[in-house]
Design a protein around this nucleic acid. Sequence first.
DNA 1: CTGAAAGCGCTAACAG
DNA 2: CTGTTAGCGCTTTCAG
Lengths: 344, 344
Amino acid sequence: MNARPTIYDVAQRAGVSKSLVSLVLRDAPHVAEAKREAVKKAIQELGYRPSRAASALASQSTRSVGLLIDDFRNPWFVELLAGVRSVLDPAGYTVTVADLRLEEASGRNPVDGFLAQHVDALVVAAEAPPEMVRDVRVPLVIAGTRSLTPLLGKSLDDGAADVVAGDDDAGGQLAARHLLALGHRRIAHLSGQGAPAEHRRRGYVRAMAEAGAEPLVYGVDGGTDEANGFRAMRQALDAGGRAAGGPPTAVFAANDVMALGAMAALRDAGLRVPEDVSVLGYDDSPLAAYGYIRLSTVDGHSRRLGAEAAQMALDRMAAPAAPPRRLLLEPAVVERSSVRETIA
Amino acid sequence: MNARPTIYDVAQRAGVSKSLVSLVLRDAPHVAEAKREAVKKAIQELGYRPSRAASALASQSTRSVGLLIDDFRNPWFVELLAGVRSVLDPAGYTVTVADLRLEEASGRNPVDGFLAQHVDALVVAAEAPPEMVRDVRVPLVIAGTRSLTPLLGKSLDDGAADVVAGDDDAGGQLAARHLLALGHRRIAHLSGQGAPAEHRRRGYVRAMAEAGAEPLVYGVDGGTDEANGFRAMRQALDAGGRAAGGPPTAVFAANDVMALGAMAALRDAGLRVPEDVSVLGYDDSPLAAYGYIRLSTVDGHSRRLGAEAAQMALDRMAAPAAPPRRLLLEPAVVERSSVRETIA
DNA sequence: CTGAAAGCGCTAACAG
DNA sequence: CTGTTAGCGCTTTCAG
């Protein structure tokens, strides 16, 4: 017998019917102990593994949810995923992860992939093109970005998606105010493309304006990656050198990897962090916590974000018609060693 | 019509038979252009997506392979995955990834999960317990670690697994010789648990012995993480302070994150890299390439590793009875800024 | 509590 | 080239 064993094989070997095997698999309540044991033994001996394909087909449910993230290279997703699993695992759901960047690179549509796989719900934690998530016929929750919200409101027929996101506007303000409170006035902001960066930038600009300080934004048209962090920092330095005020005494970067790029540029310029220039990141990614880096940063609570998103998915599966929910998480600054008071 | 559309719906709408729809889906050669268009149009209008579950069940194949990695937090896997996909995507295969650490944490067996999902092949790039991969009845390739090899030889009935790994022994030797050639003699090695670290350690010890230098190994009983890199570096420093020779002039860490921990310890001790102490990592992970870090490291060619592993999987699916293959990749050192000649 | 029977959506021979 | 016919392995009524 070389082929994969089926319930039939198990049933036969255990001397029971096929349905009984099905029952002990989903450990149903009223099954005679003896038979249950016999079935388990047969499963063991045969190396039987139930076929998900068959069960999905028969039950019209896979008890799985798809999680779409932006980019495996940005460790931000790790905590998000941990949060998602912390609520989905106990509920008996499986989660499968796909990386938008990678899927697009190979010309595929990850949402189609998930749907073909019969996921019972979808959590999108990436900036997916709206048409990609339009018309999915399973519960959809958008995690971590607010940009899709308005677009979705119109296009989803059967109720808009649930949304949980970090309040990036508030985070940007928080960051600027934090630096301002420490006495900094020449605070540069390193930004980039994409909705989260945009919100953070807006928050920063508002807080600077309120304090009567001049907003100094660089790198807006680049990526939110290390290279652009480096470039934008160099620009800030060059601009500061020519300007009356001198170089910035503090820098707020749109995320941690940009901050890391900025730190490299500062070191190359012979400037010390935080003695000469304070650097504040965003995301509280694992990067920021390394002892060699010790980056002060704004925590968007990605783990909690994941957990809330998962809970929303669960709730919606239970009550598809409930009104859509929106939740904004309040960011907080995490002090490490890259920020200090201005010495002026 | 709220339910998910099926081929029947598509066929009806396009005015053709179900089998014709099936044919255009797998774009078969001899189909009338008009009908093909009609079918495509119907698919579009209905938002039809083929059911993987049904097709898996009917065809006994999913055209998917499972990739088991160690830990999403270690960015090592990113390039590995890119390599895997670079050969599997064009071949029309889908790859699904699972993280061993996470699965074990929630008490699941990822291999069972993959098998239940009907993957057509399995690539294991993690130190999975041998019993976990015993008795999988699909093509199996072990990527990146040699430790499972001897165990598997015995336990797999239908031919052992294919294996492709970095030659960690050679890498350890290479690292030590590289530092030796730069004039270093007091070269500490920061190690940890697990097979790769063990091989790297062995290579290091051999090269040191051959050069008549004393092996200085620390951290063997800890993890291969940043914290242990930090701790082991501290121990090396303390030992060097008491010893006749003084502290090491160079450090070789079992991987990049340990090296990063070491760099933190060195800075805390007031030592500069590379002026006072050279630091060499292993893996050439994305971490090492950051401008702020610029870690010299040993490249295990993870992308190529992934590509080779995927090719082996493909080959074995095509020829299940072919003799098992083993491939060892030769590591190379990547020079960045954390290593220099000794000044002695 | 247990067994029989009917499909879930699709593929894979075939015969038209 | 097209339509028919069986299942794939499992869940789920529904009678015993």
